[in-house]
Write a protein that binds this DNA or RNA. Structure first.
Lengths: 351, 351
DNA sequence: CAGACTCCCGGAAACGTTTACAGCTACCGG
DNA sequence: CCGGTAGCTGTAAACGTTTCCGGGAGTCTG
């Protein structure tokens, strides 16, 4: 007894069959009208009316099965709380929403197994593409990305020849901007609070700091370098350790969270910023503008990188045959109160 | 010519048909084995081997069409950059991920049409449920929520009798905690920087502030009240306007972003915090701990509310027949340096 | 040893949509 | 008046999965 239920979905909601039956046409005609392609005026009228009467809404899953698209795009970042990812996420969401798609956000916690698992899961085809910003990059990552049946765009440094869409910046030269600026404003004992050296950004920033000093012929006192992770608390603690050893007149921090932590420690220890110690962060997030004094910061164009990544991804979704492309966003320095030349910082800040 | 392509997906990827053919069994058997239900040892072996050989991965969309579930849950908040939503999002993501589902994040920008459109779109069934935290609540919202074919949990104040799963706190009494604390520590001219009064939290906090003062028999000087929106910049500006009129010895802010802005203005104008002006924020976000001095803040348990909302949602997804439920999270005050009694704030803060 | 019961298997339906294809009507040009 | 064409329409296949159901084989029980 083929008890076909060609009328309603299992939960009683109308399907295209319901509409078709009610309009007295075939499901093919109903579908065509509902998609705005073809149909005689009379048919259009009947189907529209029927659809309105029963409150028909097409089922996105069934449509996806047919079209092989979910209109969903995923973003995987280490920590959705880090303001730099917030900015990136906002930019991506804008582009993605503009194309009528929706954004799925994954927090990876920076764990590699997590990230590769995520990439492998792409094979399930539950999204049309993914933007991932890994903090460490392994061979597994690359394999997973190149194996992936859906497009992936990587934000961050990658091997030159990796056949992968890639958006990058140059945090190495970004650090140089900060160092040059501090030297130009008369600072001489420049400290550096970095994140883990086994991460891609950590390593790049370390190299950048050393290279920048070397370019000015300044020998590096290792006591001026401290490492934590990329968080606020770590920035506080690392700066404490650094101050226990040495007395810098400037501090470069590997991101704004660290810089915020450094500022806290500096102020708590009675240092005036920027009078005694100038401070420069990195990423130029909202957070930098919220501190008092406001933090100078090296912008790595996170919003711009997000935008570009999203564009690359959407283009590739539309045309998978594209060759791998790379976009680069140049860093720039935003000088604010925390590293101004002035001796009396407070007076200069206009509230 | 029924050229059935029962072997591979259109893009050449293996399907359950591929596996079944290779293992020499029916797709029914293959499916059963792959789902770990039934199958003789020999069949299991063959299917497993075949699946491994061709690298079979089930198609999530097809599975969803069959199961009527996407294993996706949506979260809609005004602004993914606001730290209070970041905390909530983290908590929700943890619960959601723990159930094997994934989180879809929508930024509504607080626009009502946006939010109702989002709710209406739920009818497409592209997610299994949604958590929404509207900042304004209209009849449209309620209608859209109750009409929704998929479960919705609302975070925020709602009419008592709304037949909707709801997680709330009591920011009214939260404000009272702040006021009581400030009065107890000897403050007398307490200012209040609020968000828009036509929002649910804005109205509640305004009422709370007035009630708290009244409870202590203190007449309210309207000059001590200022309104902006819930952002950092607005907090800065509103505090400027307030200081132009009056000289408070304490400031209560409707959230931590506003409080951060207020702190900026206070310091820029040479006020010492807390010596001259004590400051209390609301939401107890990371941001409060990042400021210097660290901000006292009324915790509204955002993480807890997120967790509870996620739990309510998952329960309802599993059993839609549940009656509407409500969870309430009590506010609590976290006192930090910005409102401590001490006259010499700086010395007391340990870095 | 017959009947009942268990287990496993394959065919086919179902989820709800889009779309290729073929048939039909009506109209037009020659 | 006839062949061709354009426009609609309905039937049915397809997307890839899960699952209902009936049949067959094997095992146990009485």
């Amino acid at each position: 007894m083929g008890r076909k239920r060609l009328q309603e979905a299992t939960d009683g909601r109308p399907t295209v069959h319901t509409v078709a039956a009610r309009a007295g046409v075939s499901i093919a005609s109903a579908s065509r009208v509902l998609n705005g392609v073809g149909g005689s005026p009379e048919t259009v009228r009947k189907v529209r009316a029927a659809a309105a009467e029963v409150g028909y809404v097409p089922n996105a899953i069934a449509r996806s099965l047919q079209s092989q698209r979910t209109e969903l795009v995923a973003l995987a970042v280490e920590d959705i709380g880090n303001p730099v990812y917030v900015e990136m996420m906002r930019a991506i969401e804008a582009v993605v929403a503009g194309s009528g798609r929706q954004l799925l956000v994954h927090a990876t916690g920076g764990r590699i197994d997590n990230e590769t698992a995520l990439l492998r899961r792409l094979a399930h085809r539950y999204v049309d593409g993914m933007i991932i910003s890994p903090i460490r990059v392994t061979a597994d990552h690359l394999a997973a990305v190149t194996d992936s049946p859906v497009p992936v765009v990587v934000v961050g440094q990658l091997a030159e020849d990796a056949p992968v869409d890639n958006v990058r910046t140059d945090s190495r030269s970004g650090i140089a901007l900060a160092v040059d600026h501090l030297l130009a404003t008369g600072r001489r004992r420049i400290g550096f609070v970095n994140g883990p050296l086994d991460t891609v950004p950590g390593a790049a920033r370390d190299a950048g700091f050393r290279a920048a000093l070397a370019a000015h012929g300044i020998p590096l006192d290792e006591n001026l370098v401290e490492v934590g992770d990329f968080q606020y608390a770590a920035g506080r603690e690392a700066t404490q350790r650094l101050l226990d050893r040495v007395e810098p007149d400037a501090l470069v921090c590997a991101n704004d969270l660290i810089a915020a932590g450094a500022l806290h420690t500096l102020l708590a220890r009675g240092r005036r910023v920027p009078t005694d110690v100038a401070l420069v962060g990195m990423d130029d997030t909202e957070l930098a503008r919220m501190m008092f004094p406001q933090l100078s910061s090296v912008s790595l164009g996170s919003a711009e990188r997000g935008r570009r990544a999203a564009e690359l991804l959407l283009q590739r979704i539309d045309d998978p045959s594209l060759p791998p492309r790379r976009a680069q966003v140049a860093p720039s320095l935003v000088v604010r109160a925390s590293s101004e030349r002035t001796v009396t910082a407070r007076a200069e800040v206009t509230a």
